[in-house]
Design a protein around this nucleic acid. Sequence first.
DNA 1: AAAAAAGGTTAAGGTAGGTTAAGAGGATGG
DNA 2: CCATCCTCTTAACCTACCTTAACCTTTTTT
Lengths: 199, 199
Amino acid sequence: MEEMKEKAEKLFEGIKRHTELSPEDEEKIFSRLTRKVIKRKQFYLHEGQIAKSAAFVVSGCLRSYSIDENGFEHILQFAPANWWITDMYSFISEKESYLNINAVEDTEVLLLTRVDQLDLFDEVPTLERYFRIITENSLVNSHRRLLDNMSLTAKERYGKFCQVYPTLINTLPQKQIAQFLGITPEFLSKVRNESLRKK
Amino acid sequence: MEEMKEKAEKLFEGIKRHTELSPEDEEKIFSRLTRKVIKRKQFYLHEGQIAKSAAFVVSGCLRSYSIDENGFEHILQFAPANWWITDMYSFISEKESYLNINAVEDTEVLLLTRVDQLDLFDEVPTLERYFRIITENSLVNSHRRLLDNMSLTAKERYGKFCQVYPTLINTLPQKQIAQFLGITPEFLSKVRNESLRKK
DNA sequence: AAAAAAGGTTAAGGTAGGTTAAGAGGATGG
DNA sequence: CCATCCTCTTAACCTACCTTAACCTTTTTT
């Protein structure tokens, strides 16, 4: 499958932006990857399942979210092209996930199971370094978002979201942006309306 | 300094709970650690400084927090004994921190600079594994807290805090618990009052 | 031991954001 | 190509949580 090698190239580039990777290393990693297509609205992971693998998005966009006891959805993460996504809790503990992950649009992913990942960490130490680094970065993002949620108003958070994810603004339904920001779609509509009037 | 070796023992135990560590490895790590005492209310890190090191708490408790434009403090993390704490953003990017870290009570820490940490990752690969794992766990915690802040009421979050950190409840001033939960001290007082009445 | 500062409680009034409901496009699917 | 279902908007009303401020208690400083 020459086609699939092209797709993995994107991942290898990402790794090489953080650490080294020999052609042999690439081969070892490549042999553990599985390609999968997830159509719009289809699920990659359902709440209660165990997240056996993590997904590297080649094209398209996935989202992870939880559903609270009142049935409201809260979006934890969007994963556009070149991002990893999984339910980290379930992935590392092998316990039942509390997140759902599905496709915002038709999406193509490369899957890596936890078992294969751990094997690879021994075979290709530089891969463990890569995951250590991107996990550090994710933690910084998550902390930043926590503090933003505590210190900024909904309007300010929306403004920041527009700056940070200018691409997503146009492709994503507003409902989902609201669920990411932690407000209702109705209130986001109000906020947007007010922002427009001022210009 | 035999005394200091005892303190590092706590750290080594923690590492060995996640991965292997030979006596030689321990020696290599030990030689990079610095001991420091931080008295109650004294600072380990000020906003705007660069977090050159991460701190492993041997005894006592540190807290990290940011100050918003209205002067309100928002607590990101408490670090009781056997936890690591730093401003991860500043630590990995070497840019100015946006967090303050100071001591809730008299605290003793072991410091590891980023430079030494990265050196050690090459010398002792198993240490990189340890940090990869605890960073994964931190990310899970941070995600959990994000979703809790979006889906639970203040009262529910307080209840959860009491379950998860039963020790901290008694030692910490309520003001700081409120700043961690993302509510005002006055409102926490009300919440606690209501909870009591029901029992 | 006095003075000052900090932490906690209570209560009245205010506001950011939620709820409910209804209507107008747009997309989707049979 | 019509029916159905989303998505987005608007508006009236509601509530969880904030603000201010007064008062008390405990801790810290001198």
